Amino acid sequence: MNDVAPPPARPAPSGQSVPGHRMRTAIFVAAALGVLVAATILWWPRTTVVKTFSQPPSVVYSDDSPHTVVLQHVHAPIAVLRLSDDSTSSLDHYEVYLGRDPSGGYGHHVRLDATDMDPTRLTVEWATEGVSLNFESGHRVFVPATSFVGGR
């Protein structure tokens, strides 16, 4: 009987990859990118409108536009990593926007980092000279009308 063994398989020439290796590499790269994108989305700062205060009809500014005070809560979980020495990047803080945009997307910006006060208990006093932001703690922030009138 003439039994002939098949010739041995030739190894892949150097410099060429095996198709399975390429597939595993592609899957690994795709998974790593997916994790990176998901982490970025989950750790990106989120802003929520807490309260809005509309300008009363009795107060009129030089641009004859209605203005709004928008109190926003900013939750920035990425700040927990302390990537910089910047102490202004706190995890949770509040921001106030004053201007013509009722959504708070544009206007004069005031960041509230004070402790021992609850910004959600904010009251607003409108006057032709400007707006007073008053807190139960006794803190008061005055923003002159020239800072937010005219679309600033």
Score class of each variant (00 low, 15 high):
Phe28Gln: 11
Ile27Cys: 13
Gly99Ser: 04
Ala31Val: 13
Ala79Asp: 12
Pro144Asp: 02
Pro19His: 06
Val50Ser: 11
Leu81Asn: 06
Leu36Gln: 08
Ser17His: 11
Thr52Ser: 07
Ser103Asn: 09
Pro13Lys: 15
Leu112Gln: 02
Arg10Gln: 13
Thr68Lys: 06
Thr88Asn: 13
Asp63Gln: 09
Ser103His: 05
Ala145Ile: 01
Asp86Met: 02
Pro144Lys: 07
Thr25Gln: 14
Ala127Arg: 11
His109Gly: 02
Arg22Met: 08
Thr128Asn: 00
Arg46Ile: 00
Leu122Pro: 04
Asp63His: 05
Ala32Phe: 06
Pro66Thr: 13
Phe142Lys: 03
Pro7Asn: 11
Arg152Ser: 11
Ala127Ser: 13
Phe135Glu: 01
Pro57Val: 08
Met117Leu: 14
Arg152Phe: 02
Val96Gly: 07
His67Met: 04
Arg24Ser: 10
Val96Gln: 07
Asp116Thr: 01
Ser90Phe: 03
Asp64Trp: 10
Ala30Trp: 04
Gly107Ser: 06
Val80Tyr: 10
His73Glu: 15
Asp92His: 11
Leu122Gln: 03
Arg111His: 02
Ala31Lys: 05
Ala5Phe: 13
Gly15Gln: 05
Pro102Arg: 06
Ser84Glu: 08
Leu122Ala: 06
Val131Tyr: 04
Val143Glu: 02
Arg24Met: 14
Leu33Asp: 00
Glu136Ser: 15
Val50Lys: 06
Ala30Glu: 07
Leu98Pro: 03
Tyr94Arg: 07
Leu81His: 09
Ala26Ser: 12
Pro119Ser: 01
Thr128Gly: 00
Ile27Phe: 08
Arg111Lys: 12
Leu83Ile: 09
Phe28Pro: 00
Phe53Gly: 03
Ser90Cys: 08
